[in-house]
């Protein structure tokens, strides 16, 4: 369990990036963090693995204050994948790149190889093992960077904008992989602007604005809140818009509607059941 207690952080002492963040991340949870650019999302998840230390407040990992732990220690428990894959790729083959993280954490050669193959396969990178990461496209590099952290299967996994540059199919693959890891008891946190990705894959959503959490709860509740959508600079989910249009005609259509299945149910209900 990770607990953030009234975390404050400022990069330069003038502008405050986080002003009093309190958040509880339970084991085995899966949730999304949304918010406009500059809301403090990345700053917050950097606190989860100790890259940044709170200037006020505390970060507690499994009952232990992270103040006394090194980043490498925390990294065994909390994996973090950054936005820009080019910031972490440095080896001359995809294979070595993925195994690098596994070795750091102390897996044996055969275990590392097994995990590497499995991760590459589930991210659609089977044929790339011997390729140099630098010759790959942006989206492929992104997946290699993801693979290098996902393969270690940390208990907590935080991903910063993992869907950038990925097509629908690759997004589904990623979502599937995250769901599988989540089923095995791993906690998955995703920072994203991709609202459809959130709706389809994450039951809980945390919305941030101006360094504060402005909403935290079930995804359908948070995303059907107009104020949240507005302050996070998002467009309302397609299904919510469709539901609103329908409600003009059929007042029985619900307010908090974000999923296709919900909309289907409602329409079937209106049509008198099928």
């Amino acid at each position: 369990m990770i607990i953030l207690e009234d975390v404050h952080y400022s990069y330069d002492g003038v502008y405050t990036a986080l002003r009093g963040i309190s958040l509880q991340v339970d084991d085995g949870e899966r949730f999304a963090v949304i918010g406009a650019n500059g809301a403090g999302k990345t700053t917050m998840i950097k606190h989860m693995n100790g890259l940044l230390r709170p200037q006020k407040g505390r970060v507690i990992l499994d009952g232990q204050d992270t103040k006394f732990m090194s980043v490498a220690e925390i990294a065994r428990e909390v994996g973090l994948v950054f936005q820009n894959p080019d910031h972490q790729l440095f080896l001359d083959s995809v294979k070595k790149e993925v195994e690098f993280g596994l070795r750091n954490i102390g897996f044996t050669e055969s275990e590392a190889e097994q995990r590497r193959q499995k991760t590459l396969a589930s991210l659609g990178l089977e044929g790339f093992a011997e390729r140099s990461p630098f010759t790959l496209s942006g989206g492929e590099r992104k997946r290699v960077a993801l693979a290098s952290v996902l393969s270690t299967e940390p208990r907590f996994l935080a991903l910063d904008e993992p869907t950038i540059g990925q097509d629908a199919h690759q997004k589904n693959q990623l979502a599937q992989m995250l769901a599988e890891m989540n089923k095995r008891g791993r906690t998955v946190v995703v920072v994203t602007h991709d609202i459809e990705f959130v709706i389809e894959n994450f039951p809980r959503t945390v919305a941030m604005a101006d360094g504060q959490i402005i909403a935290d709860g079930s995804t359908s509740m948070v995303l059907s809140n107009d104020e949240v959508i507005e302050r996070c600079a998002l467009a309302p989910p397609q299904m919510t818009l469709a539901a609103r249009a329908l409600r003009n005609v059929f007042p029985e259509v619900g307010q908090r509607l974000t999923l296709l299945s919900e909309l289907e149910e409602t329409i079937i209900g209106i049509l008198g059941g099928a």
Binding site: L51, V71, A72, L80, V81, F82, Q88, F100, S148
Partner: peptide
């Protein structure tokens, strides 16, 4: 700035820079 971002990304992968 880029150098700092890279250091963060590698430290998150378990690279111990000051050890």
């Amino acid at each position: 700035q880029e150098a700092y971002a890279i250091m963060d990304a590698q430290r998150a992968r378990g690279v111990e820079l000051d050890k």
